[in-house]
């Protein structure tokens, strides 16, 4: 299967009295695309809409030109889709193999023999093949997460949507996941979410930063870092709290680092600093405490 194209326009979704999505547009085709944002930014809502499990209140989605609002086309999209929801669980008493095989059945992966071969393939891909007879209840958190990823890779789908795939993985497993996803991204479109800046940059060439139900930045990680140029400073003492200063925090050497625009006539001697991805992220995202550890 070839990489699916995804086009979302002006998606809006209200959940529990607030705007989970307040007009989100996004296009993707091939490669690994990361959604970065704080908890509650709307990443999960966006991925749920794109995975066709939730209908947005307004706006349109096209996957390979197919419209999920139409029942038939939605089924067709689902044939091309692998999806890892944010909170996925599987029957504790079922075995690893049975769980993925069950997913293969609901994904209509054909006769048992073919499907079983595919189940083995994805279990090998995530390194769970030798645990296939074990019960889900006996797996560690990282293994469960890999089990979830395995079912999302069944049938080499053209669109792979992974909500927080690195959750519960240790650094070594994250590395393996990155490598694996970059390989999957060669022939599929991979959309994933994370709330960790470095993770997002390591996973993908394209990232979208979300905040308050909107996409506030789209581009490369390097481009994101560049947006903070000239707005990152160090000073010997914490800067006075003010609307122009977005965040400040104490460094290990006792100095303070802050992002934002120092107000005119600031008595502190400030030095410009080289921005990092995290600085740029803090500048973009509204809902962060203005002082961290300071």
């Amino acid at each position: 299967m070839t990489a699916s194209s995804v086009v979302a326009e002006d998606l809006r979704l209200r959940l529990g009295g607030h705007d989970a999505l307040a007009g989100v547009s996004l296009t993707a085709r091939g490669g690994v695309v990361a959604l970065l944002g704080p908890n509650g930014a709307g990443k999960t809502s966006l991925l749920r809409c794109l995975a066709t499990v939730v209908d947005p209140d307004a706006g349109s989605i096209r996957v390979d030109g197919l419209d999920p609002a139409d029942h038939r086309q939605r089924v067709e999209i689902r044939r091309r889709l692998g999806y890892l929801p944010q909170e996925v669980g599987f029957a504790e008493r079922a075995t690893v193999f049975d769980v993925v095989d069950y997913c293969g059945i609901v994904k209509e992966h054909g006769p048992a023999e073919r499907r079983h071969a595919e189940v083995v393939r994805v279990l090998c891909a995530v390194g769970l093949a030798d645990r296939r007879h074990e019960r889900v209840g006996a797996l560690s958190g990282g293994m469960r997460q890999r089990l979830g990823i395995a079912q999302a890779l069944l049938g080499a789908p053209g669109l792979v949507i992974l909500d927080e795939p690195a959750n519960g993985l240790d650094p070594e497993q994250r590395l393996a996941l990155r490598e694996q996803l970059s390989r999957v991204g060669e022939r599929s479109t991979v959309l994933l979410s994370t709330h960790l800046t470095e993770e997002a940059a390591a996973f993908s060439q394209v990232l979208h930063v979300m905040d308050g139900g909107r996409i506030v930045y789209s581009g490369t990680p390097a481009g994101l870092t560049a947006t903070a140029r000239g707005r990152v400073w160090t000073a010997p003492a914490p800067p006075p709290a003010g609307p122009s200063i977005r965040a400040s925090w104490r460094l290990p050497d006792g100095r303070f680092r802050f992002v934002g625009d120092p107000p005119a006539g600031l008595a502190l001697p400030v030095t410009p600093a080289e921005p990092t991805l995290e600085d740029a992220y803090l500048l973009l995202v509204q809902r962060v405490p203005t002082t961290i550890g300071g």
């Binding site: 995975a51 499990v53 089924v75 996925v88 669980g89 599987f90 769980v99 997913c103 994904k107």
Partner: peptide
């Protein structure tokens, strides 16, 4: 596994 099931054809 509800969401996974729903997202399947």
């Amino acid at each position: 596994a509800h969401e996974v099931t729903v997202a399947a054809p």
